[in-house]
Amino acid sequence: MSTGASPNKRRAGEAMGGGFVADPRPQVQADQVLGVRCAACGYPSAPAAPWCPVCQSREQKPASFGPGGTVWSSTLVQIPVGRWKPPYAIAYVDLDEGPRVLAHLASPAIVKAGTRVRIVGADEGGDLLVRVA
């Protein structure tokens, strides 16, 4: 990984020396992930979707998800990626009654599928951080 990637190569983002790129990640506030829940079918989305991707209802109510969740899978990354230095652990987490989100694990270690975790908050770069509950 070239951490000095020049900005004309791809939309690498400011963390990689590129231009500003609007943040596509779900917003994190304290121990909650912000998003919406469909008023018609209850489908949770984070970040917010313009209409429900399941039932197409336009009525999307602001909602927050967390702090509890269950790990679907996790891995320990051993290469540098952007501002992240190895080793770092990432996981897909199914938030309780909420969406599946990608999260960084506070401890750099793999945890088994089904492990209960809890949102710590956003890290300094705005990434969702969870720890084993």
Binding site: M1, G82, D127
Partner: peptide, 24 residues
Amino acid sequence: LFTSGAIVPEASDGEGRAGLPLPG
């Protein structure tokens, strides 16, 4: 485009922005 290592993730994609490389 990519001088060494894995392909740099797109910062405009939520998972790329969060540091998920394709091998990840």
